[in-house]
């Protein structure tokens, strides 16, 4: 799987012969500049068994100042995705 990773946001971690899962990706704030085109939300096909760590390794956001959420909850980086999951990238921010 390692050799077939594509280092961009839209086509990631898949082999032609595998049954792919579709997940939703959303990016907010200044992270939007890393999405293709003007979209802040798009769908991504991933290989079954792929986890957050795989995606973080492959994406093209050049820093780690973001918070990731899957279905509104924090996951361990090694937890696996299932069909229809939503992965959100939020810029790190705090407020008062």
């Amino acid at each position: 799987m390692e050799s077939q990773k594509r280092h961009c946001l839209t086509g990631l971690v898949y082999r032609k012969d595998s049954k792919l899962l579709q997940i939703n990706i959303k990016l907010y704030g200044e992270l939007k500049t890393y999405t293709p085109g003007d979209h802040t939300e798009f769908k991504m096909m991933i290989e079954p068994g792929a986890c957050l760590e795989d995606i973080l390794k492959a994406i093209a956001i050049p820093h780690d100042r973001f918070v990731t959420l899957i279905n509104g909850r924090r996951w361990k980086k090694t937890d696996k995705f299932v069909q229809g999951d939503t992965l959100v990238f939020l810029p790190e921010i705090s407020g008062g």
């Binding site: 907010y28 704030g29 200044e30 939020l90 810029p91 921010i93 705090s94 407020g95 008062g96």
Partner: peptide, 13 residues
């Protein structure tokens, strides 16, 4: 984020 959008940027989070 705080410099760019102020604390109101937290709404998205």
């Amino acid at each position: 984020g705080l410099t760019v959008n102020g604390t109101a940027g937290v709404v998205m989070t």
